[in-house]
Amino acid sequence: MMDTDTLDMLRTSLRHVLTEATNVPLADRLGELGWDEVVADDPVTALHTLFTLKGDTVSSADALGPRLAAALADALGDPQLTTATVGLESPFGPSSLTDGSLTVDAVVFTPPSDNPVVVRVDGEHLAVVVGSALTCTRLTTTDGELAQFRLTGTVPAAQVQCIEGATASIAWNAMVTHGRWLLACELVGIAQHVTASAAQYTGERIQYGKPIGTFQALQHRIATAHVLVVGAARLAEHAGHSGDEWSALVAKAVAGQAAETACTQAQQCYGAIGFTWEHEFHHYLRRTYVLDRLLGDWRSLEREIGNELMNSRHVPKIGML
């Protein structure tokens, strides 16, 4: 486990890496920090810190893509796939493997080159295909800065490696679980930043001769958000340490809701200035909307939780004394 001083130094370095203006990929810049060793030493603390800071700084670097590939490679026991690009479900249509050919429609964060792309086909199998065989188009998104790309194309089955059955499902679920945890951390980072920043702003903005933060109407908005953010933070921490699927599902559900609530309440505290590009707030709002959609938005995840409770007739407990 990392001690407090090491963690503080790591935070400072990561904050610098996440906010510096450069076109060098995040992975290369992290490499200079000796990131791989940090992750190998204490993966939960390292990744939790990185993704929470990424939310805090609204960094647009692609930290998630490489982690999804690493999780999938790890679950499949195939180290070559650590260089893969994982194609997430596309809102425009499914990927499928039929009649001797693979049809791809998937979303990624960094364009693939000649590295492998892994997509889920027909909701169960995994298909691996070389990235250069697919067409990559940048998407315009609610968040203009966090890049997302759509991969499309039809590839003859002979050029496709198919991973079938339970192996595929288990690996994909492990990747989703890892991704949900990291996204929960990032959403918590956003929610913490927005809540603290709005609280501070209400102490500076004077109306009627006093700081607007003295009004209970605003105090209660921020307190409401903070409570949900604390709950989300505890769940995200636990999801990291436990690594289990259910904890990550619940953590992402609460984190998405916490970030949206924090943004809604903060927006009203900022008033008109928060509605403009002269203020940083819009970055956080847009980022929340985009991240919440990845690997299940909070309303869908709550439905998933509820359906699981009803159908299994079992209410599990997360975390033991």
Binding site: G231, R234, L235, A253, E302, I305, G306, K317
Partner: peptide, 19 residues
């Protein structure tokens, strides 16, 4: 029809539990 409401309640109870 009640999936989200139950899921939300559970998520809040889980957040309370860990906190």
């Amino acid at each position: 029809e009640f999936a989200q409401q139950l899921g939300h309640a559970y998520a809040m109870a889980a957040a309370l539990r860990l906190t």
